[in-house]
Design a protein around this nucleic acid. Structure first.
Lengths: 222, 222
DNA sequence: CTTTTTTAGGACTGATCAGTCCATATTTTG
DNA sequence: CAAAATATGGACTGATCAGTCCTAAAAAAG
């Protein structure tokens, strides 16, 4: 059972790995190959951390979600913390890539933004229970005393804000938004609104109420 | 050592307690009196839950923060969960009371709102590390599968939103806000913005950036 | 005083926590 | 084939988890 390549490296390094082997005469990995796909395991770990948060996720949860043995788990990343950081990094990268991709496909930038705002309403997890945005969850679970996590949340928040800012720039180009608008500032503003709405969703505020706030926010964007 | 009255009841019931004793001839409490103040213990418990969240707070933390013995802890509330719910309820009540009080003292309703928005910047905990708003923390830590918690977060979110809505009504009365504005909708909107800004603060976004978002939001309120 | 009632201290519980270690299995290399 | 290298399963660790229980202390009531 091999599944997804035998390199323990992640997707980005796989190419280099193959290149090394074929061109530089670096030998193939010796020893028993992994019986799991590290990428897939990380994805599963991310899902469970997303759903439950860091503290509430036990190693047992991680083992069950990934299907790995304890040895394989600790050989892939050396601690629960390391798994979490890798999973969270993956989440941020994927989310930002998705955001950018759907922006590129969007016909109307403002409708794209409305879609991002309304998106807070469909974030159901595996069991149908909303799990919110992992970035929002993580930022609020940790205090600011963990530098590595803080660095990740800051970077992701700024990244998301910039994508929203880019959407607003396109809105200006298309004539949907005043050329005087400060798109960078509005990007951070919208990111805050989205985070706030996600918190309200998790607080039990009705979908109707959320939707009308979205209308209000959109009506202010001119 | 008595400290703050010998009734194990909380503040609201203390009056009834005394009344029962004096009017209904109910005898005074027999037995050894508590050597701690339940109100004060709850306040301490609230602080530590606020700072660390539910999962990350251990019973040891709770014992250390309150100074209680394990027996007293479990006699006051029967579980960690019960302590948490009591502490969170206390937080919500106190916060809402503070919000209302400072609204009543405010001269300019819009400046009051600006103050609430900028307030996200000074939420330092005991050790100087921002701990955010407990409501935001709690809403994001728990998934929606805990009915009691959900009920508390929903109620608090709506309560805070309504106070903001009331401030906006006063702004209309004073002429600071258009009479056409939907103050209820704007109240929920502002509550979302505040939650979002708190998340950004915990994500490491700079105070300067937060402040300029506050300016942006205020400039939209007309 | 004795009795009754409540609180407090702290030993104790079984479960679970994150993490280690080692023997065995499975592969490539030579 | 044998040797080397890596992966796996799972037993094992000490620490900590939330929570229980029992005994002693301290107060009011009679």
């Amino acid at each position: 059972m091999r599944g997804c390549g035998q390199s323990p490296m992640n997707g980005l390094n796989l190419g280099l790995d193959i290149w090394n082997r074929s061109v530089l005469n670096v030998p193939m990995n010796r020893g028993r190959p992994k019986s799991f796909c590290p990428e897939q395991a990380l994805e599963s770990a991310m899902q469970v951390f997303w759903q439950r948060g860091y503290e509430a996720t036990s190693l047992q949860d991680l083992l069950a979600a990934t299907g790995l043995s304890k040895s394989s788990l600790y050989q892939t990343y050396p601690s629960k913390q390391a798994w979490f950081e890798a999973a969270f990094t993956r989440y941020c990268q994927h989310r930002q890539a998705l955001l950018i991709e759907s922006l590129e496909q969007a016909s109307s930038p403002l409708e794209y933004i409305r879609g991002r705002l309304l998106g807070v309403l469909d974030d159901d997890g595996l069991d149908g229970i909303p799990r919110g945005c992992m970035l929002v969850n993580v930022a609020n679970e940790f205090s600011l005393n963990q530098p590595e996590i803080l660095s990740l949340t800051k970077q992701a928040t700024e990244g998301f804000s910039q994508v929203l800012g880019a959407a607003l720039k396109r809105a200006q180009a298309v004539g949907e938004l005043s050329a005087q608008a400060d798109t960078e500032a509005l990007g951070f503003y919208l990111q805050a609104v989205i985070s706030g709405l996600r918190t309200q969703v998790k607080s039990g505020v009705s979908a109707q109420r959320i939707a009308s706030t979205v209308d209000l926010v959109m009506s202010q964007l001119r």
